[in-house]
Amino acid sequence: MLEIKDIHKSFGDNEVIKGIDLKIDKGDVVVILGPSGSGKTTLLRCLNFLESADSGKAYYGELHVDLKSVSKKDINKIRQKTAFVFQNYNLFNNKTALENVTEGLIIGRKIPKGEANEIAKKALNKVGLSEKYNSYPSELSGGQQQRVGIARAVALSPDIILFDEPTSALDPELVDEVLTVMKNIANEGTTMLVVTHEMSFAKDVANRVIFMDGGIVVEEGSPHEIFVNPKEERTKKFLRRVLPEDYTFHI
């Protein structure tokens, strides 16, 4: 349902994405791993047009765009079908949790307010925040804020949700509550593309893992293939560094 062909992106002289092909099917839970600077966050942001790619082609369902010359209308159309969860949550500071979730529904999708409130409440309940409808972001912990961020994405019923290191800004004790929520929505069949360092999520929940380094896809496959039988030397080096124990384990 989402396919990218030969995407390139440079910042000035620095080429950060050096030609990547990506294909995501409905129901996939894809994790992108890689060292910092490998371009994985930039790739994600390009998919949502928060950065503009230099070249490449993209297919969002039936919509076919050239990434260099995509129109504002098409960008807005694509954003109606995708959702983004940010590393530092980016909740609307001037709105309550409920309003954060309904904003995209009422203004972006023109859903009437009553219906939007119902959808939003369901989403907030799903992430365990039924007590916090009327709280402002400044009153919530980091984990709670990120859960609102996920509810905000889920409520839009998007074709795919993009997660940009959703737990990296959280204190360790708060990471689990967010990962649990993510696991739950994955089990419901949501299509997810996740950039993360949380190996447990990649091992337990993902059905595909992509390893990126230096702007290209080095290796991709099922979690078993990547973690137990990595083929590339770079992949092995990376895994050795991030997994403290000997990484033979069972899925």
Partner: peptide, 8 residues
């Protein structure tokens, strides 16, 4: 960024 990502 969050605002445009939810479709505004």
């Amino acid at each position: 960024e969050a605002a445009v990502s939810v479709g505004l």
